[in-house]
Design a protein around this nucleic acid. Structure first.
Lengths: 215, 215
DNA sequence: ACGAGATATATCGGACCGATATATCTCACC
DNA sequence: GGTGAGATATATCGGTCCGATATATCTCGT
């Protein structure tokens, strides 16, 4: 996943480790606080694999900075990234992975985008159903804190499902990456927002993805 | 963290590994899908430390199950847990850790509860501020997907802050662990599947980030 | 009688974090 | 002019937890 993110970011131009980390942490918001203990080894591995190339530590550091090593994508790395993008498997529906995938949607084919969004939605719906069952089964023995947490988590999941629904609708309608912007979280100031939920073009159950549910 | 959760759960009575995992994963909702690769080693470590004790694999397995090893809390383990509960440090404000802590609030002193809730709130507020700055700095170069994600994440964080605010208020008012229940997130108890439309039952201000109350 | 599936314990490699060490440069402040 | 806080930058290490996999036993439907 980290390697995927690095390759994705380097599409925008060469970067050195420190800056790369900032982008991944702050800018993209993915990786709450990416550790150098993950980053530098990953960079070395990518160099070893030939997916990126490293410039030797700058001989004459420009004013204001220590010598740095700049990394850039190789042709092979670009290819590898495209391969990874297409491999949108079950792991992709997970919380962290999903965010990273979404961050590089602009470089992802529409077909794959839809698959990821729908996979994520199914995943959340499964989780929700599961949560509700479990909650029902022990609603007696729950202290108020657990209950509060349970409800907040449930609410959050429901919201995300709705958000995904909007993204999916927009996607199907053919909103281009740099064209019209996807919905902005229901801006609940007003605006009834007609037809923002499932509707036509939704045969039955859109996806058959459905990964084996554990327990 | 895992050890903390195990010790916490075992307060309710002895359990064997398989069941313990179910409780941690499904019931408490913490640990999306706790791995046995974490659980069993953790159990052994806890036994070695004397915090829990293990019954030898049942000599005569009752009908219907394979022989199992049952674990129960020792007096020392109980003590250790109390020590951990009081050590509510910065690590506690993190997403996963916070959920686990909250799950055992019923066994946590009011003073510590408040500290955790407020710490969590500050953390979220910092993160929010940081996100907004970063977003502002590169609002030009953001594709629509990144923007959508950014906004959804922001919205989710705002909501959690509001939720925390309610919990904190309730806590200060002195809602006792087994007494009056804390606020329940716009209560919508059960209800099979509340169709996906914007619930406008939000009493608090819809938008407007009132993020000033940092300490 | 047979296989699918739940119950149950266990191990292994790998991904990522958190703390720490290190070096260099800038800038505020006294 | 000296000192120290803080940003920039690379690096390593131990630890925690995940994901896949192996194993054995019992139940139940067909």
């Amino acid at each position: 996943m980290l390697e995927f993110a690095i390759l994705g970011l380097l599409h925008d131009g060469p970067l050195h480790g420190y800056e790369l980390r900032k982008q991944l942490t702050n800018a993209l918001g993915i990786f709450r606080a990416l550790s150098y203990g993950s980053l530098y080894p990953a960079l070395r591995a990518l160099v070893a694999a030939g997916h990126i190339s490293a410039t030797a530590p700058e001989p004459q550091p420009l004013a204001g900075t220590r010598a740095r090593i700049t990394y850039q994508l190789t042709a092979q790395g670009k290819e590898h990234f495209q391969g990874l993008v297409r491999e949108a498997g079950p792991a992709t529906w997970d919380d962290d992975d999903f965010d990273v995938r979404l961050a590089f949607f602009a470089r992802t084919e529409a077909q794959v985008r839809l698959r990821i969004l729908e996979g994520r939605r199914s995943r959340l719906e499964e989780r929700l159903e599961h949560m509700r069952e479990a909650a029902l089964a022990r609603r007696e023995r729950m202290d108020s804190y657990t209950l509060a947490l349970q409800q907040h988590t449930e609410d959050r999941a429901e919201r995300e499902v709705r958000w995904l629904e909007e993204l999916i609708t927009a996607e199907r309608r053919g909103a281009h990456p740099s064209g019209s912007p996807p919905p902005r979280e229901a801006a609940r100031t007003t605006q009834p927002r007609p037809a923002a939920y499932p509707t036509s073009s939704d045969p039955t159950h859109p996806q058959t993805a459905h990964i084996e549910t554990k327990e």
